[in-house]
Amino acid sequence: MSGGHGHDHDDEYTAPLGETQLRVKALESLLTEKGLVDPQALAALIDLYETRVGPRNGARVVARAWVDPAYRKRLLDNASAAIAEFGFTGRQGEDMVVLENTPRVHNMVVCTLCSCYPWPVLGLPPVWYKSPPYRSRAVLDPRGVLKEFGVALADDVEVRVWDSTAEVRYLVLPERPPGTEGLHEDELAALVTRDSMIGVGRPKAPERRPR
């Protein structure tokens, strides 16, 4: 297995890795040797966040709040506890705060410093949430940002921008769409988009069903 050296035929060899990949491999292998991480635990974490934790958790919380006034009150009073009723709890010990959209107030969430985000209910943040333009423009020009996301607000609607921190993460409780009176909780949850829970979108409209 040691005959690889001194060969000139580059095609026969594995393509060099990028600088970034090499640095990640260096970190991972050194930390693994020291017993601080192990590849299986890392793979399990990645699977958890790539496939199992995602915005569907938050959608279930929002749908419950739409159908159950008592839950809605608990959610607004103590979001961390109300969200934990579903078994969604933070790994970083952060506090959750739920912000209620109304006909008069529209809430949107940003993290200007890094990209703090409510993982337990929304999974990992989307590309745009982590981008410098969003992080700066959400604060400077929230209405302009909302317009780019397709959310047009009347002039008399107040926009409140909330800056996440390591300690506090926000989830927006969007308004329940009109025409959804007869829908079940699961059907409602399917209408709740990730963007609506960050405050840069609205829930989907219900499909018209024949009566």
Partner: peptide, 10 residues
């Protein structure tokens, strides 16, 4: 994903 998981695990 690897870099993410390393920080969370540590």
């Amino acid at each position: 994903a690897q870099a993410f998981a390393l920080a969370v695990r540590l």
